[in-house]
Simulated scan of single mutants.
Amino acid sequence: MVSPSSLFLILLFLSIPFSECNLTTDYYKNSCPQLENIIRETVTSKYISVPAAAAGTLRLFFHDCMVGGCDASVLISSNPFTKAERDADINLALPGDAFDVIVRAKTALELSCPGIVSCADILALATRNFVSMAGGPVYTVMLGRKDSLESNISSVEGNIPRANTTMDEIIRMFESKNFTVGEMVALSGAHTIGFSHCKEFAYRLFGYSRSTPTDPSYHPKFSAALKTLCANYKNDSDMAAFNDPMTPSKFDNMYYQNLKRGMGLLESDNGLLRHPRTNHFVDLYAFNQTAFSNDFARAIEKLSLSGIKTGNQGEVRRKCDAFNTFQT
């Protein structure tokens, strides 16, 4: 009998371009048999020393996949001739530890099996392992992606939601990439771990409107605590708050429960609760941890296949932050 997860993968592959069907779970079985061990050791070491790297790497993966597909284009550093995605303002706060763990894994893999494993596959695997270590679901990662041959700062705007993007705009953004509303809400659950800088939501605390300085959607005690935490945010841009203040390092459904308590940190978070096309998913996931875990796993599996490059559409970079051939 076919299992639900196997059936999902079968249906998923029927709906994706042929090039993406070239991916397999054992793509590196013969060419780099130590891949999984190296990724596991690298990620575990980073997670032990910097637990926040889990949320950072998940965010890095999302920012990569949403702009042109999961092709490691976000890892490219700018050069004197071209500004890369990494320098877009929405990507400037991507944490260094997330980039660092990919660099460390790539370095180890180049010593074990040089020129074989793409940075895009490393990022996909590292993200899965971090999610699992934080208590999230274990999901399937297909392998065989190639790294992009381009990365342009101009490609970013309009493809990644901002903290104040309206829910209608976010829905349209995801639908343009063939994601359903439910899948978008499930992926938003990634905010169950990690933090956001005060500057991203300070307007909800100190300048919401002339008559109401603080967004009334916040629970009063929550907004009071945030005001104290972020009081000096204009002078200290590193000030931040946990997206989920209740279980900030645990990948669970508390994020959705917090939304119903008036503890949605970002305006885009709060929008999930208030929009008629998304609020019933919030209710479901707040009540049912299993439903959230299963739906998140399916949604991120789908995301991981978005816009991938195979064959001569890409390359296997020697260094994750630079193309193999210098581009002007």
Rank of each mutant, 00 (worst) to 15 (best):
A120P: 08
D26Y: 04
V141Y: 02
P51V: 00
P137Q: 01
E41Y: 06
I48L: 14
Y139L: 02
Y47E: 01
A52K: 12
A88S: 06
L94I: 11
K106D: 09
D97N: 10
C32Q: 06
A72C: 04
L125K: 14
P51C: 03
S45I: 01
L94A: 04
D89Y: 02
V43E: 10
M133C: 00
P33R: 02
F81I: 07
I122Y: 06
G96K: 14
L23A: 10
S132L: 13
L92G: 00
D87M: 07
E110H: 05
N79R: 07
L75C: 14
F18I: 12
P80T: 06
S118T: 13
D87F: 03
T42N: 12
V43K: 10
D26L: 08
L111K: 15
Y28L: 12
T82W: 09
N22R: 13
P51H: 09
A84K: 13
M133F: 14
L92D: 05
K46W: 10
L23M: 13
N79E: 08
A93M: 11
V74H: 10
V117I: 14
E85A: 03
S78G: 07
Y28A: 05
K29V: 12
M142R: 10
A53D: 11
D26H: 12
S73V: 01
A108F: 00
N22I: 00
E36R: 03
K83G: 11
S49E: 15
T107R: 15
K46F: 11
L75Y: 06
C113L: 11
D87C: 04
E41K: 15
A84D: 04
V138M: 06
I102Y: 07
I48S: 11
H63S: 02
C119W: 09
C65S: 09
C70D: 03
Y27Q: 08
E36T: 13
F99M: 07
T42D: 02
D121S: 09
F130P: 00
P33K: 12
L23N: 10
Y139S: 02
N22P: 00
E85V: 00
V67A: 14
V67M: 12
I76H: 08
C21Y: 03
S77K: 15
L123H: 11
P137L: 01
L35P: 10
D64T: 08
L125Y: 11
A124N: 13
T107L: 14
T24Y: 05
N79V: 01
D71Q: 15
V117A: 08
C70M: 02
T107N: 15
S19Q: 15
D89K: 13
A120T: 07
L35Q: 07
V103I: 07
S49H: 08
E36A: 09
I48H: 04
T25R: 06
I90H: 09
K29C: 05
Y27T: 01
G115H: 05
L111A: 14
I16W: 11
M142K: 08
A126G: 04
K106Y: 02
P51D: 02
A72M: 05
V117N: 07
M133H: 02
G115C: 05
P95I: 12
T44V: 05
E41R: 13
R104L: 13
P114R: 14
I48F: 09
S132H: 09
V101I: 14
G68K: 11
D100E: 14
T44A: 04
R128Y: 00
